[in-house]
Amino acid sequence: MINITFPDNSVKQFEAGVTPLAIAESISSRLAQDILAASVNGQEWDITRPIEEDATIKLFKWDDPEGKHAFWHSSAHLLAEALQALYPGVKFGIGPAVDNGFYYDIDPNGNEITASEFPKIEKKMLELAREKNAIVRANISKSDALKLFGDRGESYKCELISELEDGHITTYTQGGFTDLCRGPHIANTAPIKAVKITSLAGAYWRGDEKREQLIRVYGITFPKQKMLDEYLVMLEEAKKRDHRKLGKEM
């Protein structure tokens, strides 16, 4: 048995290998439905990742910044999965969560991606999300990672892998898409219920203007369509305020 310490300093015992999701389920089924991420001994942690030793734990829901971060980070992977399906041959750079949503830097590799394609990308993301695929973490050796991504022609990923220390490399897979990533991620794609691709921008690979110029695809997702609708209204109101301010200044 291992001791799990909660934020209120209470302690409960569990079998070694228990996951944050199982711990949440032991508290209430509603909490288990709501949690998106966790921290274990101060380290970001997937809710389906086993805990093997005594630990302090925090559980994060949507209202917590850590919960949103895991949700949007997972959504970046969902975006990449959709782009892979829609634009064969596309190559991937990095795809982090940001303060409001996420982005993925991609090399279109001959594919044309414009704002007119946004509805098609959103539709594909929602289609994939509804498959409720588990997002599965795996440890992988450096040589296996280089082969996996090299065989796919993922030169940007291979460059990143070449700089990583062997024994500390992980991938995450959902459906037919595998990405190099440290995580954490939500348990599966099911909670992603509303999607909006917001903009495109140019971005030099690794911020170096002497390197390849990629396309940065920005998006945002929510666990409810109502939340997305409210967010879009808020953006419109912010634009109106900016226009009024600009008018006064002129």
Rank of each mutant, 00 (worst) to 15 (best):
I4D: 10
S10M: 02
K12I: 04
Q13V: 11
Q13Y: 03
A16C: 10
A16V: 08
L21I: 03
I27M: 14
S29L: 14
R30C: 07
L31K: 00
A32Q: 06
A32E: 07
D34T: 09
D34Y: 01
A38T: 00
A38P: 01
S39L: 02
E44N: 13
R49D: 15
I51M: 04
A55K: 00
A55G: 06
T56W: 03
T56Y: 10
I57S: 11
F60V: 03
W62V: 00
W62E: 04
G67S: 07
A70S: 14
S75Q: 13
A76H: 00
A76M: 00
L78T: 00
L78N: 01
A80L: 08
E81R: 14
A82W: 07
A82G: 12
L86R: 06
G89C: 05
G93A: 14
A97D: 08
N100M: 00
F102N: 02
Y103P: 09
Y103M: 10
Y104K: 03
D105F: 09
D105K: 02
E112N: 12
A115Y: 07
F118T: 06
P119E: 11
M125Y: 07
L126A: 03
E131T: 15
V136L: 10
V136A: 09
V136K: 02
N139S: 14
I140F: 02
S141K: 09
S141I: 04
S141W: 07
K142A: 10
D144E: 14
D144N: 09
A145G: 08
A145H: 08
K147H: 12
D151K: 09
G153C: 10
E154Y: 01
K157C: 08
E159D: 15
L164F: 15
L164M: 15
E165Q: 12
H168A: 14
T170F: 03
T170Q: 15
T170G: 06
T173R: 14
G175Q: 07
T178R: 06
D179N: 11
L180M: 07
C181G: 03
C181N: 01
L200K: 03
A201V: 06
G202D: 14
G202E: 12
Y204Q: 00
W205G: 02
G207D: 08
G207I: 01
E209W: 02
R211I: 02
R211P: 06
L214E: 09
L214V: 04
P223Y: 03
P223A: 10
P223N: 13
Q225M: 11
E230C: 05
L232V: 14
V233F: 01
M234K: 12
L235Q: 15
E236C: 05
E237N: 13
D242L: 11
R244M: 13
L246E: 13
G247L: 12
E249S: 09
E249Q: 08
